[in-house]
């Protein structure tokens, strides 16, 4: 029912945007969403809620698709918006491709994707172009490993072309938490099983780092079955992986992302600039699969772990 409502709200928002498309933009905030899937709709709704709670009227926000943005920019009808917000890679890409003449905040975007877009467009992060990352810092992930599995000594990671760049920092963070990293690289489908064997043999926890070459709907079956057979709990990066069979996941929900983006947008409207450096998500959830953890002989509570992690980071 809630999901249906979200869809309805998004449809209404998109419908309003469509109705306004013939007119030049007069909104203060232009929100560009990469897709209309539920996660984007939820982020949009949460962001609008945050803006409205801060006193911005609903009419001050326009929601566009990337194609819509491009068409308006081509027609010179972007109007005097004071800030543009991109949800996801495609939206951010379209915002970087047009001269919007206002601060651009990218959100619902992984750090690696944002950095790649900056490189591709020859731009740099600044107080006019910034981001709120979707992925959790390695420091936070390692801290959660310590909290959830205090006996763990070795942490296994499967790395692909995207995530391999994280290895040096992962090693540094792990070392600080007295953990040894057992890495293996997956360069193709054929390399998955040998790499899994290498990673799971001797690891106390298996940390999943997003990389579509390694973690995708095709490979997930073999990865989860192998880690379960090896009795190595997997810590993943989204709630979908916990449903699929990961022991736990650390992630920021679309609602949390939208709320944080709303606060950053209001601050930017007041000050005229964004945080100079992209920022980490300031809120997160810890999901636990009780059936899998029970079968592995673990007792974990997601709510307690989240609170402990927030206390550790001195978050309110």
């Amino acid at each position: 029912m809630r999901r249906l409502l979200r869809h309805l709200i998004l449809c209404c928002l998109l419908g309003m945007a469509l109705a306004a498309s013939a007119q030049p933009l007069s909104a203060q905030v232009v929100l560009v969403s990469s897709e209309s899937a539920p996660a984007y709709a939820e982020t949009t709704r949460s962001l609008l809620d945050a803006l409205q709670r801060s006193g911005l009227s609903a009419g001050a926000v326009d929601v566009l698709s990337p194609d819509e943005l491009t068409r308006r920019a081509d027609a010179g009808r972007l109007g005097p918006a004071r800030i543009f917000v991109g949800l996801g890679v495609r939206a951010t890409q379209s915002l970087l491709a047009v001269d919007v003449n206002a601060p651009v905040l990218s959100t619902l975007i992984p750090r690696r994707s944002f950095e790649q877009l900056l490189r591709a467009s020859g731009r740099k992060a600044s107080d006019q172009l910034s981001a709120i990352y979707l992925d959790q810092s390695l420091r936070r992930q390692i801290a959660l490993v310590r909290l959830a599995l205090p006996q763990a000594q070795q942490i296994g990671v499967l790395l692909g072309p995207d995530s391999v760049a994280k290895l040096p920092e992962l090693r540094t963070q792990a070392q600080g938490a007295a953990l040894l990293v057992r890495p293996a690289e997956v360069v193709s489908d054929q390399a998955l099983f040998p790499a899994l064997r290498e990673v799971l043999d001797g690891s106390d926890v298996f940390l999943a780092l997003a990389d579509p070459v390694v973690f995708n709907s095709t490979s997930i079956q073999n990865i989860l079955l192998s880690s379960f057979r090896a009795r190595v709990p997997m810590m993943a990066f989204s709630t979908a992986y916990v449903r699929a069979g990961a022991s736990l996941a650390l992630y920021s929900s679309p609602t949390q992302v939208g709320k944080q983006a709303g606060l950053v947008v209001m601050a930017a409207l007041r000050s005229g600039h964004l945080p100079e450096q992209p920022i980490e998500p300031d809120d997160f959830l810890v999901d636990v699969n009780p059936n899998v953890t029970r079968a592995l002989g673990l007792t974990l509570d997601g709510v307690e772990l989240r609170q402990a992690l927030r206390r550790l980071e001195r978050l309110p």
């Binding site: 992984p110 690696r112 979707l134 997003a210 709907s217 079956q221 989860l224 079955l225 989204s238």
Partner: peptide
């Protein structure tokens, strides 16, 4: 990698 990796649904395995 993109936000889809974080937002996409996954088949239930375990």
């Amino acid at each position: 990698v993109s936000e889809r990796d974080y937002l996409a649904d996954m088949p239930v395995v375990l």
